[in-house]
Structures are given as structure tokens and as C-alpha cells.
């Protein structure tokens, strides 16, 4: 199975990189951008066949290492 993980800064945590990207988009003439949040994308190939077990395992990986839960949120997609 494959796990796809998105990690982004929590709402309420200032994201200076997202802000800089937003300003750059504006400077390039892209109007109508309300906000940009920048994050990380991680793919993990798993030996696990069971979707629920895979999700639980990846959730533990995120909490322990992949995300810093003081400032970051994460979301997990599992694909068989």
C-alpha cells in the first residue's frame, strides 16, 4: 500500500513562506489569491495489506517523527 501524507502549518501559526509566495503571485499578476499555505508532501510505500492497520501505523509515524504537532497538522491518504 501507499500512504500519501500532507503536512501543513496549523491555522493560526504564521506561515512566512506562504505569505512570500502569495506576494510573489500577486506581483506576477495573479489576482484573486486569498491566501497561501505551504507544506510538505511525503509518500511512503508500506508492506501492510490492511488499510486500517496501515493508517494507524502512518498516524504513529506522523505523530512521532514526520510532523511537529506543536505547529503542524497532517492528513493521510491510504491507497491500495
Amino acid at each position: 500500500m501507499k500512504a500519501r501524507i500532507h503536512i501543513t502549518l496549523k491555522q493560526g501559526v504564521l506561515d512566512p513562506q506562504g505569505k512570500a509566495i502569495s506576494h510573489a503571485l500577486e506581483a506576477l499578476g495573479f489576482s484573486g489569491v486569498d491566501g497561501v499555505r505551504q507544506g510538505k508532501y511525503i509518500e511512503i510505500d508500506l508492506q501492510e495489506d490492511d488499510g486500517e492497520a496501515a493508517r494507524a501505523s502512518v498516524d504513529a509515524m506522523c505523530a512521532k517523527l514526520l510532523a511537529n504537532t506543536v505547529i503542524e497538522d497532517y492528513s493521510i491518504e491510504i491507497e491500495s
Binding site: 501559526v13 504564521l14 512566512p16 512570500a20 511537529n68 506543536v70 505547529i71
Partner: peptide
């Protein structure tokens, strides 16, 4: 946490 400097 220690985040990216505000000035980037």
C-alpha cells in the same frame, strides 16, 4: 518549536 525566521 523553532520555525523559519520571519524574514525567511
Amino acid at each position: 518549536a523553532l520555525m523559519r525566521n520571519a524574514s525567511l
